Simulated assay, not measured.
Amino acid sequence: MSRVLITGATGLVGRHLLRLLIADPRVSEIIAPTRRKLPEMNKVTNLVEADLTDVLGPLQTPLDLVFCCLGTTRRQAGSKEAFVHVDYTLVLDTAIAAQRLGAKHLLVVSAHGANTRSPFFYSRVKGEMENALKKERWPRLTLIRPSLLLGERESSRAGESIMAPLFKRLPGNWRAVKAKDVAAVMMREAFTPARQEITVIESGDIPRQA
């Protein structure tokens, strides 16, 4: 039986993943810190704070697995600095806290094109986040790099709504993927014996593995 930490549980992928975790008999307890209170759910301990770091620091529950589904856009965050805080700083804070509490496997939603040398700010920050996690030398690290995510968001992103029809037609790793498929792949990887220390799942492979 596994004790799990999930950050980003109110997001598009996180909501699907939380439902899968609740339904899975291999999961005994789920720690889900959020800014907005979640409905009462079986196995879920919901810690509500405006800043995720305020929850992660004092956390003492031993953990086995950690899922990080945090993610925003620069427009949604309001500034470059706010975007970096969510997509880099809070991801690392999640990892550091989970490692302190004994977790052996970290699974993170990154993004297609993540690269520290990318000319695009979004992709560059994602690449820097991935590199920082690799330096922590996790016993097992899984990075999932979806392209545009499809699904019903609590708050719409105008740019993504406009681009979705195009991204549904693009080939390979550029093609949009369903958020529920990303969540399914994370669950499969979490409970599959490790093949290597670091696993990177590209967007084009997500539908085949879900």
Rank of each mutant, 00 (worst) to 15 (best):
R26Q: 07
D51N: 10
W174E: 05
D205V: 03
L141M: 04
R145G: 02
E128N: 07
F121A: 09
W174S: 09
M163N: 05
D181S: 14
P207V: 06
H16A: 11
L21T: 01
H105K: 13
L52V: 03
G71W: 02
I96H: 03
P39H: 11
S79T: 02
S203N: 12
Y88G: 01
A9S: 09
R3N: 07
A179D: 00
E160A: 15
L150Q: 13
C69K: 01
S156I: 10
A132Q: 04
L65D: 00
V185A: 03
T89K: 11
M187Q: 04
E152D: 01
V185R: 13
S110R: 03
S79P: 00
V48L: 09
E49S: 13
L148V: 09
Q76T: 11
M1R: 15
A184R: 15
A132P: 01
R15S: 07
S203M: 12
E197N: 10
D181L: 12
I30K: 04
K126C: 07
L56N: 04
E128I: 08
L17V: 04
F121R: 07
A179E: 01
A111D: 01
L18T: 00
A176G: 03
L148H: 04
S156G: 10
S155Q: 14
L17E: 02
G172C: 11
E81Y: 05
N115S: 09
A9I: 12
V91R: 07
W138K: 09
N131G: 11
G57V: 15
T45E: 09
K43H: 04
A176R: 08
E154F: 11
L65Q: 02
G8H: 04
K126R: 09
R26M: 06
T7I: 07
A103N: 03
D181G: 09
S203V: 05
E40V: 15
I22N: 01
S110G: 05
I6F: 01
S161Q: 15
